[in-house]
Computed example of a mutant assay.
Amino acid sequence: MNTEHELVNLSRTQISTAEAEGGVAKVIVTCAAGAVAQETRDRVVEALTAVLQNSALGADDTQEWQETLPTWLLDRFTSPKTPEQANEWLATWRRLPPAERKQFELDSWDLNSWINWFTEEDRAWRWVGSRVDSKTSFTVFLAAEGWPFAWQALEWLIIQAGGMPELVG
């Protein structure tokens, strides 16, 4: 699937039963308290559209990404780490119990690291479509290159937009 096709898929809000059950991964998103599914989904689509439309930018083109991505998202990134800070982060992560590692990771995304996971080489999934299931939930359909696959950058985006995602396969 190429970028233009995926950009069209971002606007798709109706998914056929065959598509929904046809070998795609599903992410069920429950909205956080007070969030509305359509608005949360729209924020995710807004950010992904900006990323895909500017895929020629490198992960290190920080200034360009800051001018491209929505402000609500930019405000949620941490500062980039120096090599020393990255080593300290890794040492801390290794000391954490496994149950606490995921949250530690989710709290640590910086802009360049997050963008890097959307490069053609590193992204193991493509957006097929989505549908709003109720006022407080929606489903995202992804074409994935195998199972399991790396989707943490998308997971983080959904959380920042106001959702609580669960990958259900």
Rank of each mutant, 00 (worst) to 15 (best):
D107C: 03
F138E: 00
M164A: 14
L154Q: 05
S130M: 02
L157Q: 08
G34S: 01
R131Q: 14
I28N: 13
W147G: 06
T82P: 01
Q103R: 11
R123H: 04
E88N: 10
A91Q: 14
G22Q: 04
I158G: 08
D110P: 00
V168D: 03
W93Q: 09
D60I: 03
W127V: 03
L111Y: 06
A99F: 05
E155C: 12
L157G: 06
E67V: 07
A37Q: 04
A47C: 09
L69M: 08
D75F: 08
L167Y: 03
T17C: 10
N87I: 01
A20M: 00
W147L: 10
N116Q: 13
D75G: 05
L142M: 04
E39Q: 15
R41M: 11
T71E: 14
V45N: 03
D133L: 10
V132D: 01
F141I: 00
T49S: 15
A161G: 06
Q53M: 10
V27W: 01
S134D: 07
P148N: 05
V8Y: 00
A91L: 11
G163Y: 05
W65T: 09
R123S: 05
V168P: 03
E120Y: 09
A37N: 04
D133E: 12
L57E: 00
F104C: 01
A91F: 06
F141L: 04
L52N: 06
W114M: 12
T71A: 15
Q103G: 07
K102M: 14
A144T: 10
Q14V: 14
V51K: 08
L57Y: 13
A143R: 10
K102S: 13
T17A: 15
I28M: 14
W114A: 09
D110S: 13
A144N: 08
A99W: 08
A20L: 07
E4F: 02
L69N: 04
F118K: 03
I158F: 11
I15L: 12
A86Q: 13
G163Q: 05
E67T: 09
A161T: 06
V140E: 02
S55I: 12
V51D: 06
A124Q: 15
R12P: 02
G58V: 02
V168S: 09
S113Y: 08
S134A: 09
T136N: 09
L10Y: 02
